[in-house]
Amino acid sequence: MRKNNYGLLLVRGFTASLAGLVFISYMFSSSGGFSMASTLNSNAFFYLFAVGPSEEIIFRYFVPLVIMVFADVSYMVGGVIGGVMFGLAHYWAYGGSIASMMMAMVAGIWQAIVVWQYSMRKEGKFTFMPGLVAVMLGHGLYDYFVTTIPGILLYIGAACALVFVLTFVIIHVEEEE
């Protein structure tokens, strides 16, 4: 019953996406000695409404779809290749930093996993719904929070992780009943 619930998948996908991005950026920035806040230097609205949704459509939908069609592989294979390309595309955006590029690669692969895990399957078809919207929201809001309130980013990630775990527990309790 819960498998194809659009709202629940959207909440789970969004929280998984945002929490994952926060923890990946903390892991890489603390070990690589750079600050994410210094890499994003444009307006927060720009990242929220233009950059996040556009990059997700290109690297989590278009690139994997082209790879799926021409290489005859599943979404996850295309998603991982799209994630690597996402990292390479950020090399210049992050000022030529290898550590930042690696972080973007891991984040890209994580986003592809979220799309794969939190999208509905209808009549044997992979629908991208609502996984793609979830990662668009996650990416846009992550960039927005990094630009505006980087000091409490870790708390936001923890809150998202908590909501994600709560939904997981609720689903399992319902299934057992």
């Binding site: 720009f46 949704p53 939908y61 005859d72 979404y75 078809k125 719904m129 919207v133 668009m136």
Partner: peptide, 26 residues
């Protein structure tokens, strides 16, 4: 194709709305 896919109408709508909102604010 490795698996069949359908068109993500919700994501395209979300993208269009967010791009229009950004244009409006700009």
């Amino acid at each position: 194709m490795g698996e069949e896919v359908s068109f993500p109408y919700d994501a395209i709508l979300f993208l269009a709305i967010s791009m229009i909102i950004f244009l409006y604010t700009m």
